[in-house]
Design a protein around this nucleic acid. Structure first.
Length: 293
DNA sequence: AATCATGACAACCGCGCGCGA
DNA sequence: ATCGCGCGCGGTTGTCATGAT
C-alpha cells in the first residue's frame, strides 16, 4: 500500500505545519469553510492559505471547528447511549457518533477510552443499557421474565434488529420501513429517526420470523422455534417451513421496547400499531416480545 | 514550591477503500 | 489491470491542566 502523499512535504518543498492549531489557523479555515463549503481538502488547505495538509484540515474541521458541534461534557443520557451502542457496535466510533448528533467519533472514542472503560472495569455491574428493561441484550444475562410480566421460558424477549439489508428484506411484514417516519426530536429530546411502522399480518410476521430463525444462526433461534411450535397447526410438522401452516395464525400479542426502554403494546389481531425507535431504523436493534395466542 | 501521576482532549499515523485516469 | 489520489476510520501518541504528594 502506497503511503498517502498528504502530510508529506509538498511538491514545492514547503514544510507543512504539524501539531496544535493556532487561533489564526482556526480562523483561516473557519472563514474559508463558511464561505466556500466543503470540497477537496488538499485544495482547501492551499486555498485557505494554510501550511497544513488536507488531512489535518479535515480533522480540525470535523472535530473542532464545525458549527454544529455540541460542546461540553456528555450528558448522562448520552453516556447511556454510548454504552448501549458500544455494546451493540463495538469500536465502530463513527457509527456510534452518527447516532449522537453534535458529537464526533474522536470525542466519543476519547471519552470511552479515558472514562467509560475504566468505570466499567471498576464496576462490573455498571448499567450498560439505557434502561433496566433493555438488559435483554445478547451480551447480558437474560431475564427469566418477559416484558409482559410473565415468568416463561418460551416467550423470552428477543433482541431483534434490521441490522443488515438481508434482514430488512426478509422482514417485509414491517410496513415498508415505516410510515410517517423521519428525522426529528423525539419526545425524550433526542434527535434521531422517529420511525413508525406497521405489522401487516400476524401470519406473515410469524412466517418471516420463522424463516429468519432458520436462515440465520440466531442465539435465540430455539426460543423462536419453540414459540412458533406452540401454534396448534405447527405441532404435526414443526420443522417444516410450509407457509400454509401459518395461515391459521390470526392472533398474536407483541410488545416492542425501543432503545429508551419505552414499551409499545399491541395485543389484538389488528396488529397495527406504531412504535418508535430512537435512532436509526436500519441499524439499531430493538427488543421484541411476542406470543402467539 | 517542585515534582509526579492522572485524566481529558487534540492531533497524528497507518491502513483500507473507492474512484477516476 | 494498475496506479495515484483523496477520504474516512480506528488505534495511538502528544499535550496540557489539574490534583496529589
Amino acid at each position: 500500500m502506497r503511503k498517502p502523499a498528504e502530510c508529506s512535504t509538498a511538491a514545492a518543498n514547503i514544510r507543512l505545519r504539524k501539531g496544535l492549531w493556532s487561533p489564526e489557523e482556526d480562523e483561516k479555515l473557519m472563514r474559508y469553510m463558511l464561505s466556500n463549503g466543503q470540497g477537496c481538502w488538499t485544495d482547501i488547505a492551499r486555498n485557505a492559505g494554510l501550511l497544513r495538509c488536507g488531512k489535518s484540515c479535515r480533522l480540525r474541521w470535523i472535530n473542532y471547528l464545525r458549527p454544529d458541534l455540541k460542546r461540553g461534557a456528555f450528558s448522562p443520557q448520552e453516556e447511556q447511549l454510548i454504552l448501549h451502542f458500544h455494546s451493540l457496535l463495538g469500536n465502530r466510533w463513527s457509527q456510534i457518533a452518527a447516532r449522537l448528533p453534535g458529537r464526533t467519533d474522536n470525542e466519543i472514542k476519547n471519552f470511552w477510552n479515558s472514562t467509560l472503560k475504566k468505570r466499567m472495569k471498576n464496576n462490573r455491574n455498571y448499567n450498560i443499557t439505557p434502561s433496566p428493561n433493555l438488559s435483554h441484550s445478547s451480551e447480558l444475562p437474560r431475564s427469566s421474565s418477559n416484558s409482559f410480566g410473565e415468568q416463561s421460558s418460551s416467550s423470552k424477549p428477543l433482541l431483534f434488529s434490521t441490522f443488515s439489508d438481508d434482514n430488512y428484506q426478509l422482514f417485509n411484514t414491517f410496513g415498508g420501513g415505516g410510515s410517517g417516519g423521519g428525522d426529528g426530536i423525539t419526545e425524550e429530546g433526542y434527535f434521531g429517526d422517529y420511525t413508525t411502522t406497521t405489522i401487516v399480518e400476524p401470519k406473515d410476521f410469524v412466517r418471516d420470523f420463522y424463516d429468519f430463525s432458520h436462515l440465520h444462526q440466531l442465539e435465540n433461534k430455539d426460543i423462536i422455534i419453540e414459540e412458533i411450535n406452540k401454534v396448534p397447526s405447527m405441532n404435526n410438522n414443526p420443522q417444516q417451513n410450509n407457509y400454509e401452516l401459518f395461515n391459521n395464525i390470526d392472533q398474536m400479542s407483541f410488545e416492542v421496547e425501543d432503545i429508551f426502554g419505552n414499551n409499545n403494546n399491541c395485543q389484538n389481531n389488528q396488529l397495527q400499531d406504531h412504535f418508535k425507535i430512537g435512532a436509526n431504523w436500519d441499524f439499531d436493534p430493538f427488543i421484541l416480545d411476542f406470543q402467539i395466542d
